[in-house]
Design a protein around this nucleic acid. Structure first.
Length: 592
DNA sequence: ATAGGGTTAG
């Protein structure tokens, strides 16, 4: 007996060594397609291509190499794939960005009669989350329940993310609430779900709940919370998180650093963002891009360009997103020459193909600076497929800014015909007509909107006073101190008029009657918020406002005067960027 | 002999 066993072992060893050599060859090849194909050829020649173990490794590497069609081809030749092979493939395809294949392999696995495990489910659910396919994901959720993995913490977290990404926050929250073992990852999934769907307030509420229950947040939690702070302009919580990170000695990795830089920039403190940037010991292109776009938002074009040059000097490669940030920084600072150069270098130096965002940024850059003809020529030079609405929208913005009536109307009418459901186009067209004094046309556009049931977005502004957030919208009278606020604002506007402010009625939205115009202009949400802020804060304190839309020209000009007559610094974050008003001028230098 | 997780960025 003993001799028999010994012989068996000998046999196995002698058989194992050549195969092991091939396994080693696979490991050496790694996720590199050419090398993998060479090893594959050897496997076929030596007849060992039937080994499931080797095939599994080969397929995983092929997937990691991004060679998905090669992976599919080999898979289709595998006879009787086993659970190892399926699980490896499902995991690899999900991890390396082929979610459709993940779902395909999962189905094939079920068809082969192999039971999925909790590991299988986490990968498949992740793939469904990426695809946001509610129907498929629900089906898999029911497989989870029948297979008895409904209370597996890993699977549950994946499901919470899946439902969040499929915009079914209600179901995500129900699942989350039902979990008996809520790991920090589960909390992160739910907080991130709220944040990604624009419910930053709920994200913060949940974060506070987590702290109340003594669950320790980790760096991922902070990343999600910082993103929520960025949305809301919540400097206080943002700073608290930053302090927490510093005092607990939490390592600021590239992701956390990017979130901090973004939070400080979007909350108006770009120099603090720079401090974080400087303190990081590891930076990738995303970190650099975040900092460049931070400068861009604040109109600090030269700092943005300086950073861009430093990025190139240290050997890193800017990518498509970096160029969007650079071009937009140039546009907001009037750096036309630098922007043109950067755009040209995209293709010439980095082999990057400009996309829609870059075309939009170029039209914006040229248009804002007043080179309307050049912007128009640029558009004409684009291919047919590149002539998408956002490019025309940028052109329209330029026409409106520089009061080019004829071209503006032409562009707006084109936009209305291709995107009749976009309220922004109607508002723009109407404003252009209004500024040309064509009130009959204004009326026409207004009727068109009513007829088509299109409503413009409601603008609102928020301001924090004594740790409370107050929200104002145009003509809003819900605030308990409405009368005082309106009286204060009226007086303020009179003082501004004495100082030379002239209201620009063209900025008034067209759905209002003639006599309502001056009224509406006077009570735009940002003006109400500023009046409230001035009333409630001490002299010398900076007023900070966040607005959901872009500011109108009239508010922009009025606030310059307000900054003079009250000698206050006023900082407004609008949809696109920051405006720092001080001593009668704005940091945007009217390039907005 | 093979695989082993869910959450996070510009």
């Amino acid at each position: 007996m003993e001799a028999e066993e010994f012989k068996d072992q000998q046999l196995q060893l002698s058989e194992a060594s050549p195969k092991s050599a091939e396994y080693q060859a696979l490991l050496r090849a790694g996720p590199r397609l050419r090398l993998l194909q060479q090893v594959h050829a050897h496997l076929v020649v030596s007849g060992s291509h039937r080994s499931k173990a080797l095939l599994t490794k080969l397929l995983t590497f092929a997937c990691a190499a991004g060679a998905i069609s090669y992976t599919r081809r080999i898979f289709s030749c595998v006879f009787n794939p086993d659970s190892f092979l399926f699980n490896s493939l499902i995991k690899a395809s999900s991890k390396f960005g082929f979610p459709l294949d993940t779902v395909f392999f999962y189905r094939r696995m079920l068809l082969s009669g192999i039971s999925p495990s909790s590991y299988t489910f986490t990968s498949v659910i992740k793939a469904c989350a990426e695809l946001s396919v509610l129907r498929v994901g629900r089906g898999i959720h029911s497989h989870v329940l029948v297979s008895g993995y409904g209370s597996n913490a890993f699977v549950q977290s994946a499901l919470v993310t899946f439902y969040s990404k499929s915009s079914d926050l209600g179901v995500a929250r129900k699942l989350f609430d039902k979990m008996q073992d809520r790991t920090v990852v589960a909390w992160n999934s739910m907080i991130s779900g709220y944040e990604q769907n624009g419910h930053a307030k709920e994200a913060i509420v949940l974060f506070n709940r987590m702290l109340e229950l003594y669950v320790n947040p980790d760096s991922t939690t902070f990343v999600c919370v910082l993103a929520a702070c960025s949305q809301l302009g919540e400097v206080r919580l943002g700073c608290w998180v930053h302090d927490c990170i510093v005092s607990n000695g939490i390592h600021v990795n590239v992701i956390l650093g990017t979130s901090l830089i973004n939070m400080f920039s979007r909350c108006g403190n770009v120099s603090k963002a720079r401090e974080v940037f400087d303190s990081m010991n590891e930076r990738n292109v995303i970190v650099w891009t975040a900092m460049i776009s931070g400068y861009g938002m604040h109109g600090h074009g030269s700092q943005a360009m300086e950073l861009f040059h430093q990025l190139k000097a240290c050997g890193s490669c800017p990518n498509n997103v970096t160029f969007v940030a650079v071009l937009s920084a140039c546009a907001h600072a009037g750096l036309v020459h630098e922007g043109r150069q950067a755009f040209a270098s995209m293709r010439q130096e980095y082999g990057l193909l400009p996309g829609v965002e870059h075309h939009v940024a170029m039209v914006d850059l040229l248009g804002r600076a007043g080179f309307l003809n050049e912007a128009y020529q640029f558009i004409k030079g684009l291919k047919h497929g590149e002539l998408v609405p956002p490019v025309w929208t940028a052109m329209l913005g330029a026409c409106k800014m520089h009061k080019n009536f004829d071209l503006g109307v032409e562009v707006a009418e084109h936009l209305l015909s291709v995107e009749p459901e976009n309220p922004g186009h109607y508002v723009m067209l109407s404003n252009i007509y209004a500024s040309a004094g064509r009130m009959d046309r204004v009326e026409l556009v207004r009727n068109m909107m009513i007829q088509r049931g299109i409503r413009k977005q409601v603008g609102y502004s928020t301001i924090d006073v004594k740790n409370k957030t107050y929200l104002f919208s145009m003509g809003d009278k819900t605030h308990p101190e409405t009368n005082e606020i309106y009286e204060y604002l009226d007086e303020l506007i009179s003082r501004c008029k004495e100082a030379g402010y002239a209201p620009e009625s063209e900025s008034v939205m067209h759905e209002l009657e003639e006599e309502e115009r001056e009224y509406a202009l006077r009570y735009h949400s940002e003006k109400l918020a500023i009046a409230f802020g001035l009333m409630k804060t001490n002299h010398g304190m900076t007023i900070r406002i966040i607005k959901n839309l872009r500011m109108c020209e009239d508010c922009h000009s009025a606030i310059k005067f307000i900054s003079v007559v009250t000698s206050r610094e006023i900082i407004i974050r609008d949809k696109l960027r920051f405006h720092h008003f001080k001593n009668g001028s704005c940091s945007c230098m009217d390039f907005w």
